[in-house]
Amino acid sequence: MTYVVTDACVKCKYSDCVDVCPVDCFREGPNFLVIDPDECIDCTLCVAECPVEAIYAEDDVPVDMQDYISLNASLAKQWPIIIQKKDPLPDHEQWAGIHGKIDQIER
């Protein structure tokens, strides 16, 4: 099993999770982070660090966010590793409570 970054991260890109990851499995896109399922060791450390609760165990991803499972896997192959916490996006507070943002992901 792996962990999956979902909708709440889109256009927010909090990276608190990156600092606690022992295997550097996070990948960074322009306005979203993903987890590389081939690198994730299921340690759960990232889940508690996410301020918007965007990270789920693969088996627990809500039904309406199932597309994020394959999206994390495919984007992880394209995006670079992020190993250090960065500031969230400038307008993160505006987007934090908005749902259904999959179409807002910049690739």
Rank of each mutant, 00 (worst) to 15 (best):
M1W: 06
D7I: 08
D7M: 07
C9N: 15
C9F: 10
V10L: 10
K11Q: 13
K11E: 15
Y14L: 11
Y14P: 08
Y14K: 10
D16N: 15
D16M: 10
V18C: 04
V18S: 07
V18Q: 10
C21Q: 03
P22W: 06
P22D: 09
V23I: 11
D24Q: 07
D24T: 04
D24W: 00
D24Y: 04
D24L: 02
C25Q: 01
C25I: 02
F26K: 05
F26A: 07
F26I: 08
E28Y: 00
E28I: 07
G29V: 02
N31Q: 08
F32Q: 04
F32N: 03
L33F: 01
V34Q: 00
V34N: 03
D36I: 03
D36R: 05
D36S: 12
D36N: 15
P37A: 12
P37K: 12
C40A: 14
I41Y: 04
I41W: 08
D42W: 12
C43Q: 07
C46V: 07
C46P: 06
V47Q: 09
A48N: 12
A48F: 11
E49P: 05
E49K: 13
E49N: 06
P51L: 14
V52F: 03
A54L: 09
A54R: 12
I55P: 01
I55W: 00
Y56K: 06
A57L: 12
D59V: 12
D59T: 14
D59I: 06
D59A: 15
D59K: 12
D60W: 03
D60S: 14
V61I: 12
P62Y: 00
P62I: 00
V63D: 09
V63A: 11
V63C: 00
V63H: 01
D64M: 01
D64K: 06
D67W: 00
D67N: 11
Y68E: 04
I69V: 15
L71A: 09
N72T: 11
N72Y: 10
L75W: 02
L75G: 04
L75E: 04
A76R: 02
K77D: 13
W79T: 05
W79R: 01
W79Q: 02
P80S: 02
P80A: 05
P80L: 08
P80Q: 05
P80T: 08
I81V: 14
I82S: 06
I83A: 13
I83K: 12
Q84P: 00
Q84A: 11
K85R: 14
K85A: 15
K86V: 11
K86Q: 12
D87T: 04
P88G: 14
P88Q: 11
H92F: 14
W95R: 05
W95S: 03
W95H: 14
A96E: 13
A96C: 10
A96L: 06
A96W: 08
G97D: 10
I98W: 07
I98T: 13
G100F: 03
K101G: 10
Q104V: 07
E106P: 00
E106C: 04
E106W: 01
E106K: 11
R107H: 07
